[in-house]
Amino acid sequence: KTVHVDGVEYRFNNPEEADKFVKRLVKEKNGNVEVRGDTYHVE
């Protein structure tokens, strides 16, 4: 899984860790998540 945040790319081998990371980011930023294939885009 890959997570894109503000143009920075984070790669996770463990999908659960990627999910936790995304949830935390969305809370912090009050942002939205767009999923494209295996990539999460957080804005």
Rank of each mutant, 00 (worst) to 15 (best):
Glu17His: 00
Lys23Pro: 07
Lys29Trp: 15
Asp38Thr: 02
Val33Gln: 03
Val26Leu: 14
Asn32Trp: 14
Val33Tyr: 10
Arg11His: 14
Val35Trp: 11
Glu17Arg: 00
Asp6Ala: 03
Gly7Val: 01
Tyr40Phe: 12
Val42Phe: 12
Asp6Ile: 00
His4Val: 15
Lys29Pro: 05
Thr2Arg: 05
Asn14Glu: 06
Glu16Cys: 14
Pro15Cys: 13
His4Phe: 15
Asn32Ile: 14
Val5Ala: 01
Gly37Trp: 12
Asn13Ser: 13
Gly7Pro: 01
Lys27Trp: 05
Glu28Ser: 09
Glu34Pro: 04
Thr39Met: 10
Gly37His: 07
Lys20Tyr: 09
Asn30Asp: 09
His4Pro: 01
Val3Trp: 01
Pro15Phe: 08
Tyr10Trp: 02
Asp38Glu: 06
Lys27Thr: 09
Val22Pro: 03
Leu25Gly: 01
Glu43Ile: 13
Phe21Lys: 01
Gly7Asn: 04
Glu9Asn: 01
Arg36Val: 12
Ala18His: 02
Asp6Leu: 02
Lys20Pro: 01
Arg24Tyr: 11
Val26Ala: 11
Val42Lys: 09
Phe12His: 01
Glu34Asp: 09
Glu43Arg: 04
Tyr10Gly: 06
Val42Ala: 08
Glu28Gln: 08
Lys29Asp: 11
Asp38Val: 04
Asn14Phe: 03
Asp19Glu: 12
Asn14Trp: 03
Val33Glu: 07
Tyr10Arg: 04
Gly7His: 01
Glu34Tyr: 08
Val22Arg: 09
Phe21Trp: 02
Glu28Leu: 09
Glu34Lys: 09
Leu25Thr: 05
Thr2Cys: 15
Gly31Ala: 13
Gly37Phe: 11
Asn32Gly: 06
Ala18Leu: 07
Lys27Gln: 13
His4Asn: 11
Gly31Glu: 10
Gly31Asn: 08
Phe12Thr: 03
Val35Asp: 03
Asn30Thr: 06
Val35Tyr: 07
Glu34Trp: 08
Asn14Asp: 13
Arg11Val: 11
Val33Phe: 07
Asp38Gly: 05
Glu34Val: 12
Glu28Pro: 03
His4Trp: 15
Arg24Phe: 08
Ala18Asn: 01
Val22Leu: 12
His41Asp: 12
Tyr10Asn: 03
Asp38Cys: 08
